[in-house]
Nucleic acid binder design. Structure first.
Lengths: 166, 166
DNA sequence: GTATATCATTACTAAATAGTAAAGATTAGT
DNA sequence: ACTAATCTTTACTATTTAGTAATGATATAC
């Protein structure tokens, strides 16, 4: 369960561009600020451009600008451009079917799916509620610290089994 | 932001072993149930054994058993054994420092860290609150659906900038 | 004590991701 | 037009992760 390098560094590049406001920001400048190679930053910005998140100007005084104002760009849009992540349990199962033609657990309505589903939905909700502007202004929404879990299904009585000591 | 194959398939193997209760479960049986190769299942179980989550019996009638009862094994312990994931923003920054000696954003108290930090803490909280027993019994805790975000910091007035149309 | 069934360990190959390199295309300024 | 500064594109290499293969070790049953 980890963010990819592309997501992390791509987002950082977006923030650099956002901080530059309406002054086109060059690859070289971003690369220096983030400690990355210009080739890598160029690649990341290219991805972001294809996704319509930044626009570019070529030639002298060229560089990158946000395609929209930072309060209209959510982290979910940026991360979606940078990597193809599952958003719910359906996609998780499709990604990990084993060698069987479909998820080995669908038949018994696997509970693992619910767990991953909860997690991905939560991630998605957070990313979807944070804009670049909020990040720039240090106004990051946080989860309510007291959020609690609740049980969805009814318990099924299980037989007791001896697990002794290893 | 994605779960790894090792996490997914490793967890499934744990669940198979858990379902088998006190009957040692062979690699071959798990492999068939999950549609994976015996070599791969063997590797995953070996990892889980080294982490103390399962115990093994060799020879005929051998196989794997849970090292503890399923209500004492959380998903967080299993996933931790299967992959080394960051648990908070500190670890994220350490993992992605760019080529600089430290995270390029620490100096300005980067807000990205807060976002990732929120996400990882949330993941951790969910995984930490789900046991194998809950999964087996389909008693999966879910986040409160109505959980809302709140803003941590004060707004900083930002200048208006023209983002025009691309 | 031999045969067989199981796990254990290591080394290898394959695939995905991360990151680099180099040559091409466009624009601004003169 | 020419030059230089910038992005563009493609192809390549390196690293990590996923998955396989083969040989070795141990326990059961007879």
């Amino acid at each position: 369960m980890k963010i990819t390098s592309t997501e992390e560094y791509g987002l950082r590049c977006m923030l650099q561009v956002a901080m530059s406001k309406d002054h086109p920001l060059e690859i070289r400048t971003i690369a220096e600020a983030e400690g990355l190679s210009t080739a890598y930053v160029g690649k990341l910005l290219h991805i972001l451009k294809k996704a319509g998140l930044v626009k570019s100007l070529r030639g002298p005084r060229g560089g990158y600008l946000l395609a929209q104002s930072p309060d209209q760009i959510t982290m979910s849009r940026v991360t979606e451009a940078l990597s193809r992540n599952p958003k719910d349990e359906e996609e998780v199962c499709r990604k990990f079917p084993g060698e069987l033609s479909r998820c080995a657990h669908i038949k018994e309505n696997c509970s693992l799916r619910s767990v991953w589903g909860n997690i991905y939905r939560e991630i998605w909700r957070v990313l979807n509620n944070v804009t670049l502007e909020q990040i720039l202004n240090h106004r990051i929404p946080a989860l309510e610290p007291g959020t609690t879990l609740h049980v969805l299904n009814q318990p099924i009585a299980g037989k007791e089994t001896d697990y002794g000591s290893a």
